[in-house]
Amino acid sequence: MNRPASPALPDRLPGDPAPPLLAGSGLRKSFGLTRALEDASLSLYPGEVVAVMGPSGSGKSTLLHCLAGVVRPDAGTIEYGGQDLVTASDPRLSALRRSEFGFLFQFGQLVPELSCLENVALPLRLGGWSRRRAERSAAEWLDRLDVGGLARKTPGECSGGQGQRVAVARALITGPRVVFADEPTGALDSLNGERVIRMLTEAARETGAAVVVVTHEARVAAYADREVVCRDGRTLDTGARG
């Protein structure tokens, strides 16, 4: 089910010749009169964890949505595996999101009517798996994140931290190459928040997935290999990786 975990690459240096997995540059996006992104760029290398930091309203979530192909930028380029995501068709983007990307949000991401198990199985079922196979795999992932006991419960019956761990399982179940996490700990206390970011980064490193995590919490960002700062819609790559 999962691709064999590729070796973690936290120590890759900037001069490394390996091409980025996902590269967005010169991204602009406006919502009505609001400029969310002015000129944002981000390159993501295979297997690395990048924190996107910045004050609220700085455009970091929009940057994440653009990179993930959820929001189409007004200008700029996004390249993933040799494809241009800015011009890719909607079905193509959807297929990419189903198979190559995983998502984690701050709140409200689990379908409230479905059980935790069904929620985790959802991305596989969207990818056409049979219900039985999908749920078997989902059960494994729930166990892996120490929330196996929640399989039959609905999200409403879980605590925030448990719900986020279920969401982590859902984000990773397809064996994505990139996980996009938007303030995954924003609604949690520090202990639960740390547990979630730690499980996310560890599981991602084991499966070789790269992670883009938008956060305003330094302690959460400290789990990343490097950080990118977003301010007024512009990115400021402080460079230092490792």
Binding site: M53, A222, Y223, A224, D225, E227, T238, A240
Partner: peptide
Amino acid sequence: LDVQRAEHLRLMRELT
């Protein structure tokens, strides 16, 4: 702020 944050984070990563 940016310079200082980078420095802080470097240490925080190390501590983490």
